[in-house]
Simulated scan of single mutants.
Amino acid sequence: MYSLLDPSRFVVFITGATSGFGEAAARRYVAAGAKVIATGRRKDRLEKLQAELGAGNCHIIELDVRDRAGLEKAIAALPAPFDAVNIVLANAGLALGLQPAAEASLDDWQTMIDTNISGLVYTVRLLLPGLIARGGGHVVTLGSVAGEYAYPGGSVYGASKAFVKQFALNLRSDLQGKKVRVTNIEPGLTETEFSLVRFKGDEGKASAPYSGTKAMTAEDIAESIFWATSLPEHVNINKIELMATTQAIGPFDIYRED
């Protein structure tokens, strides 16, 4: 019989749990009997999630992953049994704007770098020693198909997700013999608040990418995360690349003069 891991053993630290993949993952893990630390910037949403899942199952922390000192303090102050983290879901991230590089906002670029790269590495680095000391665990990073395939306007967002991909692969080498697994999740077209954030609240622009198609859902991505972390400890899924059935890789972008 193929023996999956018991989810009731899981203590899952999730960044960006106020919406999208993080929120869906919190629900999926708690439904399976796990304990979840749900973190994010929007306290009202965290409180609503905790009320839904139960304070005994879901501990909440209002924080911004860009705040390294705040993250350190929050991790150090985790109460039992939530202090025995063995799964890290470094999910917090965003895209801002879709302008060509020469027209893009440097402030937007900096925010993506600070969140998608710095915030992610702070989260992983600060929680890794505990995973190792407790005998192992699993780090899940949130990449994107944008880290594999270029598209117009995706310069810094795509570059940040390419960083995440390579960081996850390098972690695998660094963690040999430590019993810590690493998986990078690379979603494609998924209908969440992602586009609403990218277009700064413009609902018309945000809905356009999903018009006339059937995108994936946050729950689809949460299920893939849960599956990867539930496999036997001798199995490591390096990455999961997911696309909606209605999405595929397009032709090369070739510029032609008139």
Rank of each mutant, 00 (worst) to 15 (best):
Lys178Thr: 11
Gln247Thr: 14
Ser207His: 09
Arg66Asn: 12
Ser173Val: 15
Leu131Tyr: 08
Leu189Phe: 00
Thr15Ser: 07
Ser155Val: 12
Lys35Arg: 12
Thr190Gln: 01
Ile225Leu: 05
Phe10Arg: 05
Glu148Asn: 10
Val145Leu: 06
Val124Gln: 09
Gln50Phe: 05
Ala69Asn: 13
Ser105Tyr: 10
Leu49Phe: 02
Leu71Val: 12
Gln110Met: 11
Tyr255Gly: 13
Gly212Tyr: 03
Ile132Trp: 10
Leu231Glu: 04
Ala77Phe: 08
Ala76Gln: 13
Ala146Asn: 08
Ile249Ala: 10
Gly33Phe: 03
Ile61His: 03
Ile61Pro: 00
Val11Met: 01
Ser105Thr: 13
Ile14Lys: 00
Ala80Cys: 07
Gly93His: 01
Lys200Trp: 07
Ala80His: 09
Gln50Trp: 03
Glu47Lys: 05
Val182Leu: 05
Gly188Ala: 01
Asn57Glu: 08
Ala80Met: 07
Phe194Val: 08
Ala84Lys: 12
Ile185Glu: 00
Ser211Arg: 13
Arg68Ser: 12
Trp109Asn: 08
Ala244Phe: 05
Leu169Gly: 14
Gly153Leu: 14
Leu63His: 06
Thr190Ala: 00
Lys43Asn: 13
Leu142Arg: 06
Ala101Cys: 13
Val139His: 03
Leu231Asn: 07
His234Pro: 06
Lys165Pro: 04
Pro251Asn: 10
Ile240Cys: 06
Gly22Trp: 05
Asn184Met: 07
Pro100His: 04
Asp174Gln: 13
Glu223Ser: 11
Tyr151Ala: 11
Ser160Tyr: 01
Val164Ile: 14
Ala17Tyr: 03
Glu257His: 14
Phe226Asn: 02
Ile254Asp: 12
Lys205Trp: 10
Arg181Asp: 03
Thr141Asp: 04
Val124Leu: 12
Arg256Pro: 08
Ser160Gly: 03
Thr190Lys: 00
Thr183Glu: 00
Gln176Tyr: 10
Leu169Gln: 11
Thr229Ile: 13
Ala104Gly: 15
Thr217Ile: 03
Arg125Val: 10
Cys58Asn: 01
Glu203Gln: 11
Leu128Val: 11
Gly16Pro: 01
Ala168Leu: 04
Met112Pro: 01
Asp202Leu: 07
Ala51Asn: 09
Pro81Ile: 14
Val11Asp: 00
Leu171Ile: 10
Ala24Trp: 01
Leu71Ser: 05
Ala208Ser: 11
Ala102Phe: 13
Ala159Glu: 07
Asn91Ala: 05
Glu103Gln: 14
Ala133Leu: 12
Leu63Asp: 03
Val36Ile: 04
Phe13Trp: 09
Tyr210Cys: 01
Pro152Ser: 15
Tyr255Leu: 15
Ala150Gln: 09
Val140Leu: 08
Leu126Met: 14
Tyr210Trp: 02
Asn57Asp: 06
Gly97Val: 06
Asn116Leu: 06
Ala51Gly: 08
Ile61Phe: 06
Tyr210Met: 02
Val30Ile: 11
Arg41Val: 06
Gly147Trp: 00
Asn86Glu: 08
